[in-house]
């Protein structure tokens, strides 16, 4: 990966400054990051955990 692409993915370089091959690669990265975000495990802390912590520190 070229430094310019990293800089773009870091938010330090606008996509317009990339050449076409790197724009295509940036698009691929956007899709991959989106797949990480949409498939990431999510969930609030279970309600019993607060009581467990409070019991343990008593």
């Amino acid at each position: 990966m070229k430094d310019e692409l990293h800089r773009h993915l870091d938010g330090d370089m606008p996509v317009e400054e990339l050449g076409q091959p790197q724009r295509d690669e940036a698009d691929e990265w956007d899709r991959m990051v989106a797949s990480f975000r949409t498939t990431a495990p999510k969930g609030a802390m279970p309600p019993w955990l607060e009581q467990n912590v409070m019991s343990e520190i008593e």
Binding site: P41, K42, G43, M45, E50, M54
Partner: peptide, 29 residues
């Protein structure tokens, strides 16, 4: 000591979300 409950409530979800993404397992998280 009971005041610590406020910190558990404020940060518990953020901590749990990160642990879940790092482990992929809700019990371990």
């Amino acid at each position: 000591r009971d005041a610590y409950r406020l910190l558990v409530r404020r940060y518990g979800d953020t901590l749990h979300g990160h642990a879940l993404r790092m482990t992929g397992n809700s019990d371990e998280a």
